[in-house]
Amino acid sequence: MKYTILIYETAADFAARTDERRKDAYWGAYRAYTKALADAGVMTGGAALQPSHLATTIRPHDGKQRVQDGPYAEAKEQLGGYYVIDVPDLDQALAWAARCPAASTGAVEVRPNLSM
């Protein structure tokens, strides 16, 4: 069963990515987490995303499409990346999600993938 772990990071998390004093700890934790997923044979995909101010959003407006800079909605946490994992059940998906570094700082959402 495939699940997507959606990683919602705080502004401090995004800042840590490039902060000289914190970037080693930040990337080290994600490198280790990714390695643990891969070595356990459960990881099937994923990506880290640039901060949401680099996002461009397309939405319908008065029958036309409008292109806007930035995220669709302001929120305390922004989508920072995701993993797709393949595990037998939700309990195990949650066990992996709890180990994600963002589970200690921002929020981590687990969704079952629709199988197509």
């Binding site: 280790a32 987490y33 390695k35 180990r99 589970a103």
Partner: peptide
């Protein structure tokens, strides 16, 4: 160590 860090749920333990 990477493997252990990746399997930890706790930020203090990871650090």
């Amino acid at each position: 160590y990477d493997r252990a860090i990746g399997l930890s749920e706790n930020a203090a333990v990871r650090d």
